[in-house]
Design a protein around this nucleic acid. Structure first.
Lengths: 201, 201
DNA sequence: CCTTTATTGAACAAGCTGTTGATTATTGTT
DNA sequence: AACAATAATCAACAGCTTGTTCAATAAAGG
């Protein structure tokens, strides 16, 4: 955009600052981080930080925005309704699969930002993104009179559930593959908690 | 415990500090709050703050812990399985009902602490509490071989969903009654998203 | 090779923190 | 109503972080 292909030094510096951010958030949470901490961990001069970011909030914002826009690119023209046919054939819904792979690539940052030392605002944004991308589109052609609960609460329910499962996956060491996770997630929503628990026939 | 019935001045001071905390978190988030802000908004001397709290983190911790232990008292010997019979008769499960009433009483603090300017760690603790109180007990007598997904992911799914619905209720102005909310919540879990959406017969 | 640009290092005022000691005000109790 | 105990106030302190600036140095790219 406004940046022409940046100097190698700039790329290096920014990468080191962001790595430091991830590590320090893991250690003490964003709250406790000072610009000093960041620049010491990144082995750069404190003044250099201010050449790239207004303050630590600006750094966090840019880091988060990069992730968000990365996700947006993956899901831009998704058709959520297709999930049904994939899932009922035990095939992972491709876009959700790609999402899990994207989280895996950015695992260290995603883990901390979505974890207990992370940013509640970011978690809110993620939930909002899930709502808009997946469930509000599905909800459009539901018939209100047939619904047992208000649509907005249903959407909140499934969106929060999905984010929560992603969080659990990240926090517990990502032992399932993206493919497995996609199936787990879509099955629970499609068939419902009671059914996947084996309580109903 | 260690406190004997406290001086009226102490009660007054602490209440004003906590009210200030809630308001200031709403305004600028916990991050941005200084002890100065708190004591100015509470109209007390800055030194007085330190007579009651070690620092602003101590204040947050104590405020959160009070809520958590309030919840624990409500749910200490709950039998989650009873929810099924209540819900299928369209009667709200009493303990969940009490929980919503408790949230309503503490609405201003709950709203901000569970909102986007709130504390991700607290949201994690709430989720953990929901897991332990409700769903791990149910999960004990599920047969693993009959489950379509791993138990821990199912538990994360429903626990996150429940917290998410509570958050949505608080953020959107608590327009439904605790009684309505209890039914909405338990129905979604019992019958599943697909069914309550009116998709299945 | 040489111009451009990034990084360094040092210094600055301003603001917040947590503590202390002396003083004043409010409580709870005889 | 009087008094002793305790809470709140006020001012001052060193220590730390912040964001900015300037001159000097180092690295990149054409």
């Amino acid at each position: 955009m406004s940046d022409k292909a940046a100097d190698r030094r700039v790329i290096r510096t920014k990468r080191m600052i962001r790595d430091a951010l991830t590590e320090l958030m893991e250690e003490k949470g964003f709250e406790g981080i000072t610009v000093r901490d960041l620049t010491e961990k990144a082995s750069i001069n404190r003044g250099t930080f201010y050449l790239h970011y207004r303050d630590k909030y600006d750094l966090l914002e840019q880091s988060e925005e990069e992730i968000i826009s990365g996700i947006r690119q993956l899901v831009n023209n998704i058709k959520p309704k297709e999930a049904v046919s994939f899932t009922s054939q035990d095939e992972p819904f491709p876009i959700i699969l790609k999402l899990f792979e994207y989280f895996q690539e950015n695992a260290s940052f995603m883990k901390v930002i979505l974890g207990p030392k992370g940013d509640a605002a970011f978690q809110g944004k993620m939930k909002e993104l899930i709502k808009k991308t997946f469930f509000q589109k599905i909800a459009e052609d539901l018939k209100i009179e047939e619904m047992l609960v208000p649509a907005d609460y249903l959407i909140s329910y499934v969106s929060s559930a999905h984010l929560g499962v992603i969080q659990h996956w990240l926090q517990s060491g990502m032992e399932k593959s993206p493919r497995e996770m996609t199936l787990i997630l879509t099955k629970m929503t499609l068939y419902g908690p009671g059914h996947v628990a084996g309580l109903k026939k």
